[in-house]
Nucleic acid binder design. Structure first.
Lengths: 210, 210
DNA sequence: GAATGTGAACACATTCACAGCT
DNA sequence: AGCTGTGAATGTGTTCACATTC
């Protein structure tokens, strides 16, 4: 149904809608209008209707959207309805371990199937039942269990080479937490989470206040 | 010098430029052209020149930008040249502790001055020399030491009320890691880092491949 | 000659406004 | 009557292309 190309930002907003809708579903709301959803998410009702219209017609005039149907549809659009994504966590430092214990992943269909690190002191140790493997095993390990996604939580200096290993292991999507720009084939889906950038952004806006 | 309004994304890119420039400065490069910076950052040279032009004229024809001058200017624009920002970390769970030990913050002028939590088992314990305080002390504590920024690493259900406490304590900027939308006065600078949203975004693009 | 800086053109994203449906 | 869905208008961000500068 996409008549126009879908804006990048629309996909992020779908996640936002989904969370609000799941809550409303639990509260027993059968139907939900774009106006109510607007209040819950802070996104304008126009924007919500436009975003949904890229993927189909999910609403009913006079009633709004049937909550559970919309939930199912957004899950399907986002690819988290049936699929269980297999995640390789690379880097078992402070951040890696924190990410590992984040329950939100599993709840939303992302399963950390293996953990890798380069530090001999960490290799072989267990993290909540999963043994930390040598990063050198990544490609071999990926032959047995096809990983879909790699989460990179390694030092900046190793991010590029580690990402390349992940690509060699057949991984198609990477979520990078290292504060560095990674260059990969454009066929690889790459997203960055960069704490320094976020803080510097706050700093910019704060300085304007002073 | 801003002739037009500055795009949101420009500020993020400035952080990107800064990191690349700092590296180039260390390598001893005296001058750098927008073309070379383009290769290092993956941002087009047009975009780089446009971004910088919002803030002034930093370059020299035929030579490019003097690396150290540009570094200084971007730091100034981002408000990390002289200012030491005081950060309150709220939430000493897995993620909070990982953030606490992230060295990048201090390096870039962000100092975690206090850590708060609601869990009695954590309160009083020390984290690398800083005692974890009761979240109820936030407002009092802020009277002694004016925090500029709060980093929220609390469970989703507590994010809204905790953010409101931070605002009452006079904090003007919040970096929220809880997977939930927070509603605050528009005067407060709020940024969200949402891992589920990033993963769902990857999922969306991955599903299109299958 | 080789770079910047920037009006103008273009592309992308949001918002408006209302026809159409139930 | 009250909602959705969507062309059209607007607003925002990026890219082009070149006059200008050293």
């Amino acid at each position: 149904m996409p008549k126009h190309t879908i804006p990048q930002t629309t996909i992020y907003r779908l996640s936002l809608y989904l969370r609000a809708l799941e809550r409303l579903e639990k509260e027993g709301k059968e139907y939900i209008s774009s106006f109510v959803l607007s209040v819950k998410t802070g996104i304008s009702s126009h924007q919500i209707r436009r975003d949904l219209s890229y993927f189909g017609k999910f609403g009913k005039s006079r009633l709004g959207y049937r909550t559970n149907i919309l939930v199912k549809n957004i899950r399907k659009i986002l690819g988290i309805d049936t699929h269980r994504w297999k995640v390789a966590l690379i880097g078992a430092g402070n951040l890696g371990r924190a990410l590992f214990s984040y329950r939100g992943f599993r709840e939303r269909g992302f399963f950390i199937k293996a953990v890798f690190d380069a530090d001999p002191r960490k290799i072989g140790k267990k993290l909540n039942g999963i043994k930390i493997e040598n990063i050198k095993n990544l490609i071999n390990s990926a032959k047995e269990e096809k990983f879909d996604i790699a989460i990179l939580a390694v030092p900046a200096d190793y991010a590029q080479e580690t990402a390349e290993k992940a690509v060699k292991a057949g991984i198609k999507a990477i979520l990078n937490f290292a504060p560095v720009r990674i260059n990969l084939s454009s066929a690889i889906i790459l997203r960055n989470v960069d704490l320094s950038m976020e803080l510097e952004n706050l700093s910019f806006h704060l300085s304007k206040l002073k």
